[in-house]
Design a protein around this nucleic acid. Structure first.
Length: 916
RNA sequence: GGUCGCUUAGCUCAGCUGGUAGAGCGCUACGUUCACAUCGUAGAUGUCGCAGGUUCGAGUCCUGCAGCGACCA
C-alpha cells in the first residue's frame, strides 16, 4: 500500500477525496446538543458573508484560510468548533450587476418594474449565487454547510424586521430630511461609510458677490476694518469674497456666513448680498462654525447641498434651496440658463458666466478629499433628502465600553483606538436606500397620514381603518442585515437552542476595511438585542497585494485566482503560502506575474511533507508498531531529542495560535518539520530502520517515528489539512492504542503532553555542531562527497566520545565519517575546536598542506578572539556588571569561559602546527 | 487639517515584554548515497531611513527630520 505513494505529491489526486471524507464523516457539523447536552465548550466563528454573486478571490482566500486554521485547531482541541457559512445579498452591488445585464439587453429596470426586476435578481442569485461557497470547499474550508444562511432568507428577514420595529419603538430609528450622501449614478442615498473620500487635486475658486446698495456702508466698514476680501468692483459696487471647490453650487446659495466674533465683518452681518447669475438677494449671517482663518473667513451657504451649511441654516433660519435633480443635473430651481446641465458642465458654465461679469477673484490648487460611491466610484453629491436614520449614540455606548474595559480585544491592538475613535464620534446612520434589491423597509403609509411600523404586514390602518396602505418604497442598507449575522444565523428572534448554544461567538476574522461597516455595528446590535457582544476577539488581517503593493483587484487585472492556484499547486500550498505571510498587522504580497514563484514555497513544503511521510511509511513497513512506552528504555539520543523537539514545537505553535501569530505558527512548524524532523531525525534514524539492525533499536526507532509523525501531522493539520490527513490515515498505529477516526478530530498536542528532555537536546546540539563543522571542513578542502574520513577527538565533555560512538552510524550517514577515536592529532590534517571544548582533528594527508591549514586556523582564531573580545569588554564594564540582571551577566561569563577555552585550544593547535 | 502606521540582506518581509540581526525567494559552488532536484550540503550580502536622546546596553523606548502609506474630518 505504502509503495503506491507517488514520489511527487499530486494534490488533485488526494484533496477532493479527503474533503469528501470529512463531509461524509460529519466533522464540520456541530449540533446545539454538543454544547447543551454534551457540555462541550463551543468555539464559534461566523463567516464574513461574501457577496452572493461574488467569485472567490485571494482576499477570500486569505480570510477563509485564517478562519479555517482557527476552526480546525479549536476542533482538535476538543471544542464544539462551529464555523457558520453564508452569503450576503449585497444590495447595491447585486442590483448593479443585474442592471448591467439588463443594459446589455437594452433594458432598464424601470422597463421591468419593481416586482419583475426583483424576481429577475432572485433568478440570477438562485442560478449563480452561492458558487463562492462551493469554491470555499476547494480551499478546504470546514464550514458547517448544514447551516448555510443568506441574508435574505425568511428567518433573517424576520430578524431584520424585528430589529427595525424594535429600534423604531425605542425611538432609535427616525425619518427625517437631512443632507445625505447621494450617488447620482446609483440614484440612492449612502451612509457616511459608503462615501469613500479620495484625496484629489482640485481647485479652490474665489468668487466675488456684489453687496446690495443698501448695505454699502456696512461693506465700507468691513473694508476699513482691514478686510482685503471686501472691495469695490469696477462699477463701484462693493463686493465680498467667498471660496468654493464646487462653484456650481453657488446657484443654490441662500446666504453668506461669517464668524460672530470676527471683527472684520461685524458690520456686514445682516447685510444683503446680490447673488450673481440668479437675481436673488441673500443675507449675511453669523455662525460659530465659520473658520476665520480659512480663505477669506466668509463662507457661502448652500444648505441643500452641504451638510455644514444645512446645519447653519438650521441655526440661522436662512432659506434652503435645492437646485439639483437626483442625477445631479441642475433643476428647475436653478436659473434658466443652467437648467438641465450636468453638474460638471454647469461648473464650467457658472465659472464662465462669473468670469464674464468680472466676479472671479482667483483660484488656487487645492488638495482635498472628494467622496466617491464605494460601489460605482461616482462622485457623491451631498443632497437634501428625506431618509430613515438610526440614532447611533445610545447604541454606541456599550460597544465603546466593551472595548475600553477589554471585553473585546483587537488584533493588532492598534485597531482598538481606531474603533474607539469612531465610536466616540459616531454619527447617525442613514439606512434607507432607493433600491429594489434588499430588505424592504417595514413601514406603511395611510392616506390619512398615519405611518405604520409593524412586524407583520398590515391590512388596514389602525387609525382610520383604511386599507389603501402604501409600503415605503425603499430598502435597507445591506449592512443593516449583516450587522445581525452573529445571531440571525441562529434563528433569532426565535429563542432557539442554536442561539443558546452558540451565541455569543468567539473570534471575528475580517479585514480592517469593514471595521466600521460591519464589525462595529455587529457589536452594537449584539449588546442591544442579546445583551452581550457577539464575539470577544476581533482579528483583523491584512490586504492581499501584488508586488508593487497595489491591492489586488479585477480592474487592475493584478488578481490571482485561488481556484487556479488550488488546481495547479494544491490547496495546501496556497494555505501554507498565505498563512506563512500572515504576520499580525501586515499585508500579504503575492506576485501575480509569477504565480509559480508566489506559491512555490507552499508547494515545496507540502511535497516535503508528502515525501517524508512516504519515506516513513516505506521504512516502517507492515509490521506492528509498539507503543512508545514499551520501548522507552531503548530510546536513543536522537529519539529522545526529537520527542523533546515535538514538545517544543507544540508549545510554540499553541502559544502562537492563541495570539494569532499565524506566520510564526507556519514558519515554526516549517522549521520543525523540515529542519529537525527531515534534515536530522529522518537522516539519523535511517540506518536503524533497515532489516540488519538491532531489533530493540529498530523498534524504538519505529515507535518514535510513528509518534513524531503523528504529532507533526496533527500540528500541521490546521494549516495544510489535506496532505497531513492523507498521510496520517496511512500511518501504522501502535498496538493497543486508540486511534481517532480522522486526523481532523485527533487531539491537538498540548504543551505539557510530553516533557522536554534538556539533556538530550544539549547533547544533540553537540553532535549537530560537530557534523556541521566537519561538513564545512570537507567543503573547504574540497573533500569529495563520497570520500570517507576519520576523526580524532581530544578533550571536551566526558560523555562526548561515548555519544559519538553511539552515533557512529549517523556520523557516517551525515558527514561520511567512517571512524571516530580519541587521541591527539598526528600528521597533516584539519583542526577544529568545538564550542564544547572538544578538539577535532581530521587527517587529510595529501589533500591539504600545512600552510593553508595554518592560514585557515589563524583566521578562525581571529574570528573567535573577536567574539571573545566583545564579551570581555562588556564584562569589564563595571556599569554593565552592576546594572544588568544577574542572569545576563552570568550568560556573558559563561560565554567568555567557553570562547576563552575554544580560542586557547585553537592557539595551542596552531602553535603545534607551526612547530612541526 | 487630525490621528496612526511604515522605512531591516538583491526582492518580499519577520523580529513579542530593550541583551547585540533572521526567514523565504533569488544568487554562488558542489552533489543524483534508492523519501524528496518541488531535493541535499556549504557559502556570500545588512552603517536595521537620517540626526539626537534615555540606558551598562537600542533594530527594539523617547524627540526631531526626510520619504512613503492608511484612516478620519
Amino acid at each position: 500500500m505504502s509503495q503506491e505513494l507517488a514520489p511527487r505529491l499530486d494534490p488533485r489526486a488526494i484533496e477532493p477525496a479527503r474533503y469528501r471524507a470529512w463531509q461524509e464523516g460529519g466533522y464540520f457539523h456541530v449540533p446545539a446538543s454538543a454544547v447543551l447536552e454534551d457540555g462541550r465548550e463551543p468555539y464559534v466563528i461566523v463567516i464574513p458573508p461574501p457577496n452572493v454573486t461574488a467569485a472567490l478571490h485571494m482576499g477570500h482566500g486569505l480570510n477563509n484560510t485564517v478562519q479555517d486554521v482557527l476552526i480546525r485547531w479549536r476542533r482538535m482541541q476538543g471544542r464544539a468548533s462551529l464555523w457558520v457559512p453564508g452569503t450576503d445579498h449585497a444590495g447595491i452591488a447585486t442590483q448593479n450587476v443585474v442592471e448591467r445585464q439588463l443594459a446589455e439587453e437594452g433594458l432598464h429596470r424601470d422597463d421591468l418594474g419593481r416586482e419583475a426586476f426583483v424576481e429577475r435578481v432572485w433568478e440570477f442569485v438562485t442560478e449563480t449565487g452561492g458558487t463562492i461557497l462551493e469554491q470555499l470547499k476547494a480551499i478546504g474550508a470546514s464550514c458547517d454547510w448544514q447551516r448555510t444562511r443568506f441574508t435574505l432568507d425568511d428567518d433573517l428577514q424576520r430578524a431584520v424586521r424585528e430589529v427595525f420595529v424594535s429600534l423604531y419603538e425605542k425611538e432609535l430609528i427616525y425619518r427625517g430630511e437631512y443632507i445625505i450622501n447621494w450617488c447620482p449614478r446609483c440614484l440612492t442615498a449612502l451612509s457616511n461609510e459608503e462615501a469613500e473620500g479620495t484625496e484629489t487635486q482640485g481647485r479652490l475658486w474665489h468668487l466675488r458677490y456684489p453687496i446690495a446698495e443698501g448695505s454699502a456702508e456696512a461693506a465700507r466698514a468691513a473694508s476699513e476694518a482691514g478686510s482685503a476680501a471686501v472691495g469695490r468692483l469696477d462699477d463701484g459696487r462693493w463686493y465680498l469674497t467667498v471660496s468654493t471647490t464646487r462653484p456650481e453650487t453657488m446657484l443654490g446659495d441662500t446666504g453668506v456666513a461669517v464668524h460672530p466674533g470676527d471683527e472684520r465683518y461685524e458690520a456686514l452681518v445682516g447685510a444683503d448680498v446680490e447673488l450673481p447669475l440668479t437675481g436673488r438677494t441673500i443675507p449675511v449671517v453669523a455662525d460659530h462654525y465659520v473658520d476665520r482663518e480659512f480663505g477669506s473667513g466668509m463662507v457661502k451657504l448652500t444648505p441643500a447641498h452641504d451638510k455644514n451649511d444645512f446645519e447653519i441654516a438650521g441655526r440661522t433660519g436662512i432659506e434652503i434651496l435645492d437646485v439639483m435633480t437626483p442625477d445631479a443635473h441642475l433643476s428647475d430651481a436653478a436659473p434658466e440658463a443652467f437648467r438641465g446641465m450636468e453638474r460638471f458642465v454647469a461648473r464650467k458654465a457658472v465659472l464662465a458666466a462669473l468670469e464674464e461679469l468680472g466676479l472671479i477673484a482667483g483660484r488656487e490648487e487645492h488638495t482635498h478629499s472628494v467622496p466617491h460611491c464605494y460601489r460605482c466610484g461616482t462622485i457623491v453629491e451631498p443632497r437634501l433628502s428625506e431618509q430613515w436614520f438610526v440614532s447611533m449614540k445610545p447604541l454606541a455606548e456599550p460597544a465603546l465600553e466593551a472595548s475600553r474595559d477589554g471585553t473585546i480585544t483587537f488584533t493588532p491592538p492598534h485597531w482598538q483606538r481606531v474603533y474607539e475613535h469612531w465610536m466616540e464620534n459616531i454619527q447617525d446612520w442613514c439606512i434607507s436606500r432607493q433600491l429594489w434589491w434588499g430588505h424592504r423597509i417595514p413601514v406603511w403609509y395611510c392616506a390619512c397620514g398615519e405611518q405604520i411600523v409593524v412586524r407583520e404586514d398590515p391590512s388596514e390602518c389602525p387609525k382610520c381603518g383604511g386599507t389603501e396602505l402604501e409600503q415605503d418604497p425603499d430598502v435597507l442598507d445591506t449592512w443593516f442585515s449583516s450587522q445581525l449575522w452573529p445571531f440571525s444565523v441562529f434563528g433569532w428572534p426565535k429563542q432557539t437552542d442554536d442561539l443558546e448554544a452558540f451565541y455569543p461567538g468567539h473570534t471575528m476574522v475580517t479585514g480592517p476595511d469593514i471595521l466600521f461597516f460591519w464589525v462595529a455595528r455587529m457589536i452594537m446590535m449584539g449588546y442591544e438585542f442579546q445583551g452581550e457582544a457577539p464575539f470577544t476577539q476581533v482579528y483583523l488581517h491584512g490586504t492581499v497585494r501584488d508586488m508593487k503593493g497595489r491591492k489586488m483587484s479585477k480592474s487592475l487585472g493584478n488578481g490571482i485566482d485561488p481556484l487556479g492556484v488550488v488546481e495547479e499547486f494544491g490547496a495546501d500550498a496556497m494555505r501554507y503560502t498565505i498563512v506563512s505571510q500572515c504576520a499580525v498587522g501586515t499585508d500579504i504580497s503575492l506576485d501575480h506575474e509569477d504565480v509559480e514563484a508566489a506559491f512555490a514555497n507552499g508547494r515545496n513544503f507540502a511535497n516535503k511533507i508528502w515525501n517524508a511521510g512516504r519515506f516513513a511509511l516505506m521504512s516502517l513497513g507492515e509490521d506492528p508498531v509498539q507503543p512508545l512506552d514499551h520501548v522507552r528504555s531503548d530510546l536513543t539520543l536522537e529519539d529522545r531529542w526529537i520527542l523533546s523537539r515535538v514538545a517544543h514545537a507544540s508549545a510554540e505553535a499553541t502559544r502562537r495560535l492563541e495570539r494569532f501569530r499565524l506566520h510564526e505558527v507556519a514558519e515554526g512548524l516549517y522549521h520543525f518539520f523540515w529542519g529537525e524532523v527531515c534534515d536530522w531525525y529522518l537522516e539519523l534514524v535511517k540506518s536503524r530502520l533497515g532489516p540488519d539492525t538491532d531489533p530493540a533499536s529498530r523498534e524504538a526507532a519505529r515507535s518514535t517515528l510513528v509518534t513524531v509523525l503523528d504529532a507533526a501531522f496533527r500540528l500541521l493539520h490546521p494549516i495544510v489539512p489535506f496532505v497531513t490527513s492523507e498521510l496520517w490515515s496511512r500511518l501504522p498505529w501502535p498496538e493497543g492504542a486508540d486511534r481517532p477516526a480522522d486526523l481532523i478530530i485527533a487531539p491537538w498536542p498540548e504543551p505539557g503532553d510530553v516533557e522536554r528532555d534538556e539533556e538530550a537536546e544539549r547533547r544533540m546540539v553537540e553532535v549537530q555542531t560537530l557534523v556541521v563543522e566537519v561538513r564545512r571542513l570537507r567543503k573547504e578542502y574540497g573533500v569529495g562527497e563520497g570520500a570517507r574520513i576519520s576523526l580524532l577527538v581530544e578533550g571536551g565533555p566526558e560523555h562526548f566520545l561515548d555519544t559519538l560512538a553511539l552515533q557512529a552510524g549517523a556520523l557516517e550517514q551525515l558527514a561520511r565519517i567512517e571512524s571516530v577515536a580519541g587521541g591527539a592529532p598526528s600528521g597533516v590534517g584539519a583542526n577544529v575546536v568545538l564550542p564544547n571544548g572538544a578538539g577535532l582533528f581530521v587527517p587529510l594527508e595529501g589533500v591539504i598542506d600545512v600552510a593553508s591549514e595554518r592560514a585557515r586556523m589563524a583566521s578562525e582564531v581571529d574570528r573567535i578572539a573577536g567574539l571573545l573580545g566583545a564579551v570581555r569588554k562588556r564584562l569589564s564594564n563595571e556599569q554593565f556588571v552592576a546594572n544588568a540582571p544577574d542572569e545576563i551577566v552570568q550568560k556573558e561569563h559563561d560565554k567568555a569561559a567557553q570562547l576563552g577555552e575554544q580560542v586557547s585550544k585553537l592557539r595551542e593547535k596552531l602553535a603545534s602546527l607551526s612547530d612541526s
